[in-house]
Each structure stands twice: as structure tokens, then as C-alpha cells.
Nucleic acid binder design. Structure first.
Lengths: 191, 191
DNA sequence: ACCGTACCGGAGCCTTACTCCGTTTCGTGC
DNA sequence: GCACGAAACGGAGTAAGGCTCCGGTACGGT
């Protein structure tokens, strides 16, 4: 079930090592240059050939997924478990902020997520994680009367990614994202 | 003031012809493949060499601007003049819808607009047109009490582009954009 | 008809995505 | 510890697009 076809035997040691290095370097390079950074650059900095990168990660999305999957899952856990007892509106807002901040770090990630919400490609599971979290937080907030009815998880998923995209594109004017988020959060409340 | 340096004499007839063809073809190709379509493809379909394209439009943004400038201006005119007498909230909503629909046609345009809001590059004027329109519609809506205070034109510009981006990325689920827009519009109202 | 110049075209160079296959390295059985 | 098969590696090769540069072409004024 692990990404690089660990169907049978465990990976060879050099393969495991290279894979780990690639993910680590990719995390850095994606954060620095965005999700459409040069894959050759990642291979170079990892000290492996481009062929090795492509064997471990047949597509850019596979690599991107390896980079963000854990972090997205952690955000979800954080939102649904740790904040489980707290104010539903607060929990929702906190998660939105974190997801948006994450999106601003890996510029271009939001676009990839939107694309892969409907297929079965690598990033699909990560999308699903986000979508489920959106659904849970939303449902709790709606039950608490903090969010009006008529909004569904897909709406929320779309909106959070849209604001995430906005965050990518407004590196200056940091409060701009907060202000946009404020509008959206206000819009989620009852009329 | 015209884009291709008509500082002195009028353009030569072949140049004028080629320029017009390029814009027309670009309009089609950008609409079909998005704002990052192949420029070589545009030159090919226009029946001119790539060098000719680059002489008329030194950057992709210059060409993109030539394609969308009139349309954006028309949307602004429509919003501020024709709808001048009608309900300010209605006028604002109508403009938002149109801009978003336009953004969905030229996928990637929103990103270019966000980037060039703060420089003096070609698309800057188009950005400014949108920004000014946002300011006018917003101000009227606020005076009419349809939009709460504390929202400024830059917020609105950001939000409309964010929803435009969302529209680019949800070709299916057409109502998804309406639903997102509904959330935002609701969020613009008083608390 | 002639000439100066504005304009044209595409070869050429660079960067990046992605593939293919000869070579190297691992790890297991003896 | 050695040998051998499989797993993994590396990078040359192919393709495509961005952008430049300059020898050639054709417009338009005289």
C-alpha cells in the first residue's frame, strides 16, 4: 500500500535511502519554488539520476503526494481529535487557517488537489482526507448552529482551496488572506 | 499608447494584419488551452513565424492583455454605467458573475492578474480597470447598506479572482461556483 | 522603378519532462 | 566469502516549448 510498490519484498537498502532523500529534498524544493519546481533539480540535489526519481515517483503528483500526505493527515488529526472538545466554529477556523498556510507554502498544491479530487490518482487519497475533515468540521459546526445549512463539504473544500490559492498569490499584504477568510467565514454563518 | 509601439508612424499594412490575426487566434487558443497555451501554436495557426509573434508581443502577458483588455473594459462599463441605476447589490453580483465566467474561459488569467496588480507590466492596466470597478461597485453597495464596512476593493479583487480560479478548476459541478459565490456574497453583507 | 527600412521567418540555443536500456549494486543461497 | 540473479541506478536520448538573433523580404514613399 506504500507508494513505491512495496507489494512483495521490502525495498533494497539503497532504494529506501534514495527514496527518503528524494522526499526530503522535494519537500525543500517544492516549498522554495512551488509544486511545479524542476524535477531534475530535485534529482540533482538528491544526488541521484533523473531515472531514479522517475522510478520511485512515476509522476509529479506521486512525489507531491509523498511530500504533503503526512502533513495533511496531521492537520486533519489535529482538527478532528485534539480540538474535538473545543468550540466547533473555532475548530473549523483553525483548520482553515492551517490548510491555507500550508497551501501558501507549497504554491500550486491547491491546483493539484482540485484536479485530483475526482480521479484515482496518487493525490486522490490526500484530497479525500481533506474532504472528510471538511465534512466532519462542517457537520459539527452546523449542528452547533455556527454555520448555516445548505453548505456542503465540497463547497467548503472548494472555498478553502480558493483562499489557499489567494494566499499563494499574495505574498505581501499578509492580512489580505485573513480578510478574505473573514469574509468567507462570515458567509458561512446563518443569514 | 497602443501596445505595439505606435509611437511614430502608423504600422505597415502587413504588420497590422499579422497583429490582428495573432490576437484573434490567441483569443481562440487561450480559450481552448488556457492562458499558458503554446505560443508557437498560436504563431503556427496564425501563419506567421515565432519571431513575428514575439516582436508584436514581447511577453505572454502582452498578448494576453491584448486578448482580454477589451472584454474586461466592457464588463466594467456594463457594471458601472448600464447598471448604474439599478440595485447596487444586484450590480455587484452581476459583475462578479461575469468576471468569474470570463476567468473560467481563460484559465490561468486570474493568476496573471494577481501577479500584475503591483507592477507596471502590460496587464497592469487591465488589473487597474478591474480594481477600480471593484471599488466603485463596492462603495455604492456599502452606501446602500448591502455590504458591511471594513471590506475594501483589494479584498474584493482578491476574492473575485479566487472564485474565478475555483471556476477554472471545477468544469463539472457548475453550480459549485454559484454556491461558493453565494457564500462570499453572504459574507460581504453585514454581520 | 528604386531604395531605405520596417518587418518577417525560422534556425538555434536553452530548459524541462519523460523514456529506455546498458551498467552497477544489493542480498541471498551455497 | 563468493557467485549470481534480480533490483535498482544513471544518464544519454527524444520531444516540446520559450525566447533570441540576424539574414532575407516586401512595403511604401519618392
Amino acid at each position: 500500500m506504500s507508494a513505491a510498490g512495496a507489494g512483495r519484498r521490502p525495498m533494497r537498502s539503497d532504494a529506501r535511502r534514495n527514496r527518503a532523500t528524494l522526499v526530503e529534498v522535494a519537500r525543500k524544493v517544492f516549498a522554495e519554488h512551488g509544486a511545479d519546481a524542476s524535477l531534475e533539480e530535485i534529482a540533482r540535489q538528491s544526488g541521484v539520476g533523473i531515472g531514479t526519481l522517475y522510478r520511485h515517483f512515476p509522476t509529479r503528483e506521486t512525489l507531491l503526494d509523498a511530500v504533503v500526505r503526512d502533513r495533511v493527515a496531521a492537520l486533519s488529526d489535529n482538527a478532528t481529535r485534539q480540538l474535538g472538545g473545543s468550540d466547533p466554529a473555532e475548530a473549523l477556523l483553525g483548520w482553515l487557517r492551517e490548510v491555507i498556510r500550508h497551501a501558501a507554502t507549497y504554491r500550486g498544491l491547491t491546483a493539484a488537489l482540485m484536479v485530483h479530487l475526482h480521479d484515482t490518482d496518487p493525490l486522490y487519497e490526500t484530497c479525500l482526507t481533506m474532504h472528510k475533515t471538511a465534512a466532519e468540521l462542517l457537520s459539527r459546526a452546523q449542528r452547533a448552529g455556527a454555520v448555516r445549512a445548505g453548505v456542503d463539504a465540497t463547497d467548503l473544500f472548494g472555498v478553502v482551496n480558493a483562499i489557499g490559492w489567494l494566499a499563494e498569490h499574495t505574498p505581501d499584504r499578509e492580512d489580505g488572506v485573513d480578510r478574505a477568510l473573514d469574509i468567507v467565514v462570515n458567509g458561512l454563518r446563518g443569514r
